Simulated scan of single mutants.
Amino acid sequence: MTTMSDILIEARGLNMHYGSKHAVRDLSFSIPKGRVVGLLGHNGAGKTTLMKALCGLAPHEGHLSVLGMDPRADRTVLLQSLSYIPDVAILPRWARVEELISLMAGLHPKFSAERARHLLQRTSVGLSDKVKSLSKGMVVQAHLALIAAIDAKVMILDEPTLGLDVLSRKSFYEMLIDEWCDGERSVLISTHQVEEVESLLSDVMMLNEGQMVLNIPLDQLDQRFVALSHDPAAADAIAAAHPLLRYRQHGQQAALFDGAPPADVQALGQRLRPNLVDLFVALTRAPELNARSAR
């Protein structure tokens, strides 16, 4: 049972604007400790805007609390216990990795140089390497090692593996889960590599044009959503039951429902486990499609 003391992030009626654009609309959610939350949405859905608010980098309306603090008013204190990795890892190219560790030790009161060196042992990055000699994947790994060596309670990742190959992405997430997630800390990950992170997540939040369209623990997906594979002959009857999405899986026609369809419809197919990619397609729409439908 989750208590108030377990809640690390809480939003109620959160709204954010960029000029006349309503970027985030009436969001309400909470993230307890020990969770790995995927934040999904198309470009422009409000993901980065929300993450900036959590870090105290953008103004907001409504209630927002991170580790019991107002991110704007208490930003200096909050950032001692909150870590953020943006979509582009930027480290000074002239520096050696060991110099970055010394720099971090002098800058951040909760940074552990010993832990940073331990984490770097999981990578191919050497302490004497200069940043300018590292590949993009190695820079991202070094960045994560430095950030994960901070004794923070919340980590926010905004497309942290953007542009990396599949092996580099896999190594990044393995280090994150193995070395940082301990049941007390929580991670919020924004990514477009939905298939790759699904097995890591405990919860998912989906945004569509600034609004929350899904906020659910992954172990409850099967309870709420029903996916059925079916023969082509049953297509019309399935369509008449108004599924969220009709698609193909493993060469077969399939349909996804929010809630259980009528028993006679369920009898027309075989139940599948819904996955996040299908739910994402069903519950969100690309901005250009929304604009087209509004005309």
Results as ranks from 00 to 15, higher is better:
8 L>C: 01
11 A>S: 06
11 A>D: 04
15 N>S: 07
18 Y>M: 01
23 A>W: 03
25 R>C: 05
26 D>G: 01
30 S>D: 05
32 P>N: 01
34 G>M: 09
35 R>H: 13
41 G>C: 06
41 G>S: 08
42 H>E: 15
45 A>R: 07
46 G>C: 10
69 M>N: 00
72 R>G: 06
81 S>Y: 05
85 I>Q: 13
86 P>K: 02
92 P>I: 02
95 A>D: 01
97 V>E: 01
98 E>G: 04
100 L>N: 07
104 M>L: 04
108 H>K: 05
110 K>Y: 05
113 A>W: 06
117 R>G: 00
118 H>R: 13
118 H>F: 02
122 R>M: 06
123 T>Y: 05
129 D>Y: 04
131 V>A: 01
136 K>V: 05
138 M>R: 03
141 Q>N: 09
153 K>E: 15
156 I>Q: 04
159 E>L: 03
160 P>G: 11
163 G>W: 05
167 L>Y: 14
170 K>G: 00
174 E>A: 15
177 I>P: 00
179 E>N: 10
180 W>F: 14
181 C>S: 15
181 C>K: 13
183 G>F: 05
191 T>N: 04
195 E>M: 09
208 N>K: 09
208 N>A: 11
214 L>D: 04
219 D>F: 01
222 D>N: 15
228 L>C: 09
232 P>A: 12
235 A>C: 01
238 I>L: 06
249 Q>R: 15
251 G>E: 10
251 G>D: 11
258 D>K: 03
260 A>W: 02
261 P>S: 09
264 D>L: 02
266 Q>N: 07
267 A>H: 11
269 G>Y: 12
276 L>A: 08
278 D>H: 15
278 D>E: 15
281 V>Y: 12
282 A>M: 10
282 A>L: 09
283 L>M: 11
285 R>P: 01
286 A>L: 12
293 S>I: 12
